[in-house]
Design a protein around this nucleic acid. Structure first.
Lengths: 339, 339
DNA sequence: CGGAAAAGCGGAAGCGTTTTCATCCCTACG
DNA sequence: CGTAGGGATGAAAACGCTTCCGCTTTTCCG
């Protein structure tokens, strides 16, 4: 095992194997014809020297960087964490690197990312997750002329992976209606979804449609909150405090909010589901522990699907955009019953 | 605004500004002397053309890729999500990209990452967060000869950012002892920390030391569990079920486990803190909502500190390794009282 | 005012890789 | 047996950028 002051190049490998750099490259990349015996010699030499391709040099000539960019406003929230892990899983199998850009809404660095970071040809394609970009950002995104896949609702007119948020909330609401509930509140998010994610607004609309369809327009109400466990807890503490105005059923914008609501109910001594039925959306990893009835989605699978969609389009950029709507299903647990 | 069939190069910018590529490069990178008027012309031309440097070509010649790698076994858990966001924040300010490698323990792709991904000179330095690498992996990491910073306990002999896990658990335990508790259990993690993170084992040791110091060795006990909210919930359900063997105080390996324990206690009708005191470690974003007494740490700040440590060493590789022990502090809330 | 130093700039080399093109040799087929 | 075809290989160009080197011009100071 020879030691190099600096990393060995393909020239070093070629010399050690007694071939030209061209042949060494062919042997190692698998492109072009090379005799089996030669290939073995090259591979042996490469292993012996601890050779690893310099991805920058390779990218320069091929124009492919073998990485994809992921832009997301959050990594800590369950949905995004799961999506990210799914993307990673698919990318690692394809030997692609993942370059992460965290763009919290309204931060200065967010503008930097769009203006400065995204244009450097560091990646071959891009996945935007749960992003609600403004016009300028959309422009900058399309300007890149890179294959793009969107996850989680916002429709850029490109390939897209999502659930039907509208239908998910409708199903959740209809579940409560079928159980006999009439006074059903929707908890979480803000009215137009500007401050939360784009899908949240669609879920609210799905709830409203189900209510209207059952002739319950009058009873529709929306309690805004931050989209988080404490957010749900806080708003539920207010909403459930007065027994006279308390609804019998709650549809939460997502499981995190639903868990906050469940916790608040417990704290207030309100029995779930006897006195209050709660249904969430997500099937969060804690949903089972809280016995939460919810509409299941699989963000991990969505991440994988998005990455695969993107990888396909890296291989063949002429492929038309594809829209994948992932299935959802009601998961019945112990947080809902007849009123 | 001229449109290019392909992205404009620095040659295009130079031509538009009426200078040589060399001068254009100097003007844009800020290295080397260039007249103010010339710089302005070049910058104007670059903006007009929508020029953005090809980072691969630049990396090839400078040997710096302006990216750093982050290796972590999780992104969804609170601690790692916070760390990741902190790292991002610091890196974005320095115009560095973040390349993420998710290495779950025992997966095939983990081996791939160490064998294949890490050696491609895609990044200039590396941060490992909460990793418990085996010997081969440590070898591969040091083989890279790249500046490295470790977060969260495992000591590779390099620069490092961490809290004193041992002391944190000791403080938590002593808090209960001072309140008058004697029968105190430690919940979460496995004995040697092999399956959970490295710091968890140190926390267990800190608990044991505090117990021993108070002459309570005999009463020391450790209830193993997955390090998660459901994990804490599950083990607490068993531990608290039998009133005769129920401890009066619990030290949880982290707040996620502690929250699981609190929830289990509520479900079992055990009053916190009247019948059971619980103290966590972390100051998780949900700790306040659950009224959890805990030992606070700030993973977001640790992420920032680690990134800064690394960036400094990128600028001057001769800098000696530095070990930053971040402070912790007991945060008193409503989950602890005298027994 | 004269000379030294510094500033400003262009030409060209070079980073490590892939790929085109040309060459050589072997096989297979008429 | 002659030749077409294809497999295997090497030489060299090219990718886009930064930087070294050298040249000219300006500035500064005694």
């Amino acid at each position: 095992m020879e030691t190099f002051p600096k990393s060995p190049t393909i020239g070093d490998v070629a010399r050690a194997a007694g071939v030209s750099p061209a042949t060494a490259s062919r042997a190692l990349t698998g492109r072009g014809a090379v005799a089996p015996a030669t290939r073995a010699r090259v591979e042996y030499a490469a292993a012996e020297l601890g050779y690893s391709v310099d991805i920058n040099a390779a990218s320069l000539v091929t124009g492919r960087s073998h990485a994809i960019g992921v832009v997301s406003p959050s990594v800590g929230r369950w949905f995004f964490g799961e999506v990210l892990e799914g993307i990673q899983e698919a990318l690692q199998q394809a030997h692609y690197d993942l370059v992460l850009y965290h763009v919290r809404r309204g931060t200065a660095s967010r503008a930097d990312v769009f203006r400065y970071f995204l244009g450097r040809r560091r990646f071959d394609g891009i996945i935007v997750a749960g992003l609600d970009p403004d016009m300028a950002e959309v422009e900058q995104l399309t300007q890149l002329r890179l294959p793009l896949v969107s996850i989680g609702g916002y429709d850029l007119g490109t390939s897209l992976v999502s659930i039907d948020d509208h239908a998910a909330a409708r199903v959740a609401t209809e579940h409560l209606i079928q159980l006999g509930h009439r006074d059903i509140a929707f908890v979480g998010g803000d009215p137009d979804g500007r401050k939360s994610s784009f899908g949240d607004a669609k879920r609210l609309a799905g709830y409203r449609e189900a209510m209207a369809h059952a002739g319950l327009d009058e009873l529709s109400r929306h309690a805004q909150s931050e989209v988080s466990v404490p957010g749900g807890y806080q708003v539920a503490t207010g909403l459930l405090g007065d027994q006279r105005t308390r609804p019998t059923g709650i549809v939460a914008v997502c499981d995190e909010v639903a868990i906050g609501v469940v916790t608040a109910a417990q704290r207030l001594g309100i029995s779930v589901p006897n006195e209050l039925s709660i249904v969430g959306i997500d099937d969060h990893e804690h949903a089972e522990m809280f016995g939460l009835t919810t509409v299941r989605q699989r963000p991990h699978e969505q991440g994988i699907a998005a990455a695969q969609l993107l990888l396909e389009r890296l291989g063949d950029p002429t492929l038309p955009p594809e829209r994948i709507i992932e299935p959802t299903a009601l998961a019945l647990r112990a947080s809902t019953s007849a009123p």
